[in-house]
């Protein structure tokens, strides 16, 4: 069915994913440990340190409030880093994509493999953090077992956004704009470390359009077991925005890579 919507897409995308898996396994010390420590520091420092000074939010202790947000944040950052930096390096410097599309793979297969890999990275890192917060007793509901699905659709969306972004930048340092203008604001304002209700009304509207806002909402519901009434809207939002970003990424990259 996917073939009807994306005629150049094939199962070959999985062979690209496998290539990334192989490289990932070779380099797991650098690929897995730092991004896993990062949120751990946030959890301990902000959750327990700062949290001691902060009153409960929506009935959660502060550390309980931010734990799901830290899981959500890696669903964003892992595919952002992998898709934008890794993707750009493979596209522009290593010419890995050029080598791939000289085989039966299409550029769409290559891009899809990249995005799927971003989603898998999101899954892996989010699950690692969930294990940690579970050990801290911060996973309150068996609904958290649904999280892998959230990681994959969320990671797919963020990966597609990152890949679409690199299709039109002229040089690698433009990736900084993605991080400072898109990633950091989401990391801080998307209902992560404080509720969006703290924001002025116009900013609350902006927050609603932040992809991370929806991922946080879903994640917090599943991990705490207190289901937000809008959870379905957020799931649908992520799936729709992810699909659009994916379609845009495929189109833009074909234009950039194939002259």
């Amino acid at each position: 069915m996917l073939n009807l919507i994306f005629p150049n897409l094939s199962r070959g995308a999985f062979s690209v994913l496998l290539r990334h898996r192989d490289v990932f396994i070779k380099m797991w010390k650098t690929t897995l440990i730092p991004p896993f420590l990062d949120p751990l520091f946030y959890l301990v420092g902000m959750g327990y340190g700062l949290g001691a000074l902060v009153s409960d939010i929506d009935g959660y202790s502060y550390v309980q409030y931010i734990a799901p947000a830290l899981v959500s944040s890696v669903i964003m950052t892992a595919p952002f880093f992998e898709g934008a930096i890794g993707g750009y390096v493979r596209m522009h410097y290593q010419k890995t994509w050029d080598a791939m599309i000289a085989t039966p793979l299409s550029i769409e297969d290559v891009i899809t493999g990249e995005i799927l890999y971003g989603a898998c990275r999101a899954l892996l890192q989010a699950v690692s953090i969930m294990i940690v917060i579970f050990l801290f007793g911060l996973v309150k509901s068996p609904l958290a077992l649904l999280m892998p699905f959230v990681c994959l659709i969320g990671g797919f969306m963020f990966g597609s956004i990152a890949i679409a972004y690199i299709s039109w930048i002229p040089a690698i340092n433009y990736i900084d704009f993605l991080f400072t203008l898109i990633m950091t604001p989401m990391f801080i304002f998307a209902g992560t470390f404080f509720p969006v209700s703290q924001l002025p009304p116009w900013a609350q509207k902006v927050a609603f359009f932040m992809p991370l806002y929806h991922v946080v909402l879903i994640t917090r519901s599943l991990i705490t077991g207190v289901i937000h009434p809008d959870i379905w809207k957020s799931v649908i939002w992520v799936i729709i925005v992810g699909s659009i970003a994916f379609a845009v990424a495929l189109r833009l990259l074909r234009r950039r890579v194939v002259q």
Binding site: S15, R19, V23, K95, A99, A102, T103, L105
Partner: peptide
């Protein structure tokens, strides 16, 4: 049905000699 040796080398620098061949063969199924 083609084999391609491009003008500019684009071997996969993240892989070894042997892995380059194995990985590439996967792209052909």
């Amino acid at each position: 049905i083609l084999g391609v040796v491009p003008q500019e080398d684009n071997l996969d620098p993240d892989l070894t000699t042997y892995e380059n061949l194995i990985t590439y063969s996967r792209y052909y199924g």
